[in-house]
Design a protein around this nucleic acid. Sequence first.
DNA 1: TCATCGTATCAGCATATGCTGATATTTTAT
DNA 2: ATAAAATATCAGCATATGCTGATACGATGA
Lengths: 116, 116
Amino acid sequence: MLLHANPKSIEIQARFFRGFSDPSRLMILEFLHSGPRTVSEIVTATGLSQSNVSNHLGCLRDCGLVSAEQQGRFVHYALSDERVGQLLELADSLLADVAKGVYECTRYSVKETAND
Amino acid sequence: MLLHANPKSIEIQARFFRGFSDPSRLMILEFLHSGPRTVSEIVTATGLSQSNVSNHLGCLRDCGLVSAEQQGRFVHYALSDERVGQLLELADSLLADVAKGVYECTRYSVKETAND
DNA sequence: TCATCGTATCAGCATATGCTGATATTTTAT
DNA sequence: ATAAAATATCAGCATATGCTGATACGATGA
């Protein structure tokens, strides 16, 4: 690689962003942006299946985007760092201006959106 | 959806982040972070194939992350907004602290890393 | 006009990704 | 100890994603 001293960091960074790049995970992150929540609260709020949420939480946890704390039977999840929320907000801000374009961005993404 | 008023915005946001979530696109974005470049400069710098770069640029352009300007035979690409660079920097900053974890994040990601 | 350079597009393939459903695990109450 | 609740894990599947190679397009110079 001619670009970076360590191409590794690029892969890490890509994997990091992948945490934000799925609608389900993003829903979870946005939800946690409003405060710590248990798994079942997340399941209810998002409408996703329990196993699905649990898998995504595992992914987000491994990536360091969220932290978990067991309390009794429940596990409370929260954004692990203030900057995770900042990233969400910055993206929101940018998105407000480029949203129109993103609709068109189907090259490496969804082929069509049926219900709209 | 019980979470957001418009689930649509979540999908858009996820698609937006997908722009950052691939090593090749990230290389391109990081490269453009240092200033506007032509396609061939990007091809040389990244070592990616021309068609591959062009496809990714099309994706990034549709998503509003980069802008293009034709000058003669060349097309000059640049980050479309200051905040795109800010996002990269914020991610870098966060990554410095959670990088160890991201290595472990193979749940919805790479199964193994052969060459290391 | 013709040849060439720079860029874009597209089909086809291999792989990665996310979801479901079943099951395991952990914790607490009876 | 047993049952039930909350969460985690995993195999299997359908689809999305990124790459390659061939080709088309657009601009410039001979």
